Amino acid sequence: MQEQASTQPVPHKRKPRLAAIEYIRGISMMGVIAIHVGSQYIMNTSANVHLIALFEVASRFSVPIFFFISAFGLFYNLDTTVPFDYRSFLKRRFKTVLVPYLVWSLFYLLHDGILYKVGFPDPLHLLTILFFGNAKYQLYFLVILIWFYLAMPIWIYMVRRAGKVSLLLLLAVQIAFDYWSSFSVSFNVFVYGLPDHSVLKPFLMYRLNYWVFHYVFIFVLGGYLAVHIKEFQAFMQKHRTGITLFFWASLAWLLAFYYKLLYVDGYTALEAINTAHQLSPAGIFYTIAASLFFFTIFTYQRYPAWLNPILHQLGRHSYFAYLVHPFFITYAALALQHAGRIMTAPVSLAFYCVILGLSMTAAILCRRLGEKLPLLNEWTIGVYPKKK
């Protein structure tokens, strides 16, 4: 979603641009919007469970794959053989992530405070909201990303020493940790059993908003493949068929899990999507498969060339579209409610297209306006004028 920038403090020859990173960013933004539109559609008690699967299950790679491409972009132009300038790195990344995060958080707090007549939070509550990324439901991603940046020396250390065996061990630990965090009955009973005034409770309740441990493997994998780009390209070229089969098999596994929850275990659709998610074992493998699959097809481009300009625009404006789309969802949902329209399957599909269209249009217009008023791009997407 965010604009990629060089993180290398020592001048060196930049590597060739990889269109796959930009294209994946756009596809992932579309998936995130699908998840949030699905959250509107699922409120219809007669919602089609198969369309819910499209909105809420098939798109589940969308958030974790952002960590994959973020790490890939960071390590692709990073020389891991020279000393890492941590201070310079944080300065650059905070300008592209922390500033937009604070600006958009304040925007949504002010907007929602007026719209829902709840006012602006007091200073202590404001700090809590900003720490956990709770100003709006999509902003937690930036909080986790900031924590990843803060721990960058750790990831460099891990990527430098990573190999096939250590990556497999890390994957096993990742599956075990995510399963414990998501499905451990004793742990979750403990968390929900804490009194509301407990200081510990929000730190555990909102652990998905800032615990980078949930996504360490996919981040390190992205960094590892970027450092070993030549080997990765050879692997993609040699195993295109296998990567494609892995993608569809992992999707089938995740969907099978979703349908089992519905038809065998008697879960509601909401309970099912909250269980068959990206942190489940099936979801983790689906994320890995999607990362390899999309990188492969966008690298070797066995599809019509006319799609590339569209994918370019989706990727270029994905950061702003990601950040602004809840604003349009709010007013589109209010318009439907005012018109007395129910979110049926056809309406939800049209709703998705409208939200995507409005978000992209706003992103393009603001980006162009930001070329004349640089502060707009600096504050909203962390893009600064190129130094002459």
Rank of each mutant, 00 (worst) to 15 (best):
Glu3Asp: 11
Gln4Met: 11
Gln4Ile: 10
Gln8Asn: 15
Lys15Glu: 14
Arg17Lys: 15
Ala19Tyr: 14
Glu22Leu: 12
Ile27Glu: 01
Ser28Thr: 09
Ala34His: 01
Ile35Gly: 10
His36Thr: 10
Val37Asn: 00
Ile42Trp: 00
Met43Cys: 08
Ala47His: 03
Ile52Ala: 12
Leu54Gly: 03
Phe55Trp: 11
Glu56Phe: 00
Val57Arg: 08
Ser59Ile: 00
Phe61Met: 07
Ser62Cys: 15
Pro64Met: 12
Ile65Asn: 05
Phe67Asn: 11
Ala71Pro: 10
Gly73Met: 09
Phe75Arg: 12
Leu78Pro: 12
Val82Cys: 11
Pro83Gly: 11
Thr96Pro: 04
Leu98Ser: 03
Pro100Asn: 09
Tyr101Phe: 15
Phe107Ala: 11
Tyr108Asp: 09
Leu109Pro: 07
Asp112Lys: 14
Phe120Val: 02
Pro121Ser: 07
Asp122Tyr: 04
His125Trp: 00
Leu127Ile: 03
Ile129Leu: 12
Leu139Phe: 15
Trp147Lys: 08
Tyr149Gly: 07
Leu150Ser: 04
Ala151Ile: 11
Arg160Ile: 05
Ala162Glu: 11
Lys164Ile: 11
Leu169Thr: 10
Val173Phe: 12
Ala176Tyr: 03
Trp180Ser: 04
Asn188Arg: 07
Val189Cys: 01
Leu194Gly: 08
Asp196Ile: 02
Phe203Thr: 04
Met205Gly: 01
Met205Asp: 10
Phe213Glu: 10
His214Asp: 09
Val216Asp: 02
Ile218Phe: 06
Leu221Arg: 07
Leu225Val: 15
His228Met: 08
Phe232Val: 03
Ala234Asn: 13
Ala234Glu: 15
Ala234Val: 08
Gln237Asp: 14
Lys238Thr: 13
His239Met: 02
Thr244Tyr: 00
Leu245Glu: 00
Ser250Lys: 04
Leu255Val: 04
Phe257His: 11
Tyr258Ser: 09
Leu262Gln: 09
Tyr263Val: 11
Val264Thr: 11
Gly266Trp: 04
Thr275Met: 06
Ala276Tyr: 08
Gly283Lys: 06
Ile284Lys: 03
Ile288Asn: 05
Ile288Lys: 06
Ala290Arg: 02
Ser291Phe: 01
Phe295Ser: 15
Tyr303Ile: 05
Gly315His: 10
Phe320Trp: 04
Ala321Cys: 03
Ala321Leu: 01
His325Pro: 06
Phe327Ala: 05
Phe327Trp: 13
Ala332Pro: 01
Ala335Lys: 01
His338Ile: 06
Ala339Gln: 05
Met343His: 05
Thr344Lys: 03
Ala350Asn: 01
Phe351Tyr: 15
Leu356Met: 08
Gly357Thr: 05
Leu358Met: 13
Leu358Ala: 10
Leu358Tyr: 02
Leu369Ser: 01
Leu373Ala: 08
Pro374Ala: 06
Val383Gln: 08
Val383His: 01
Tyr384Phe: 14
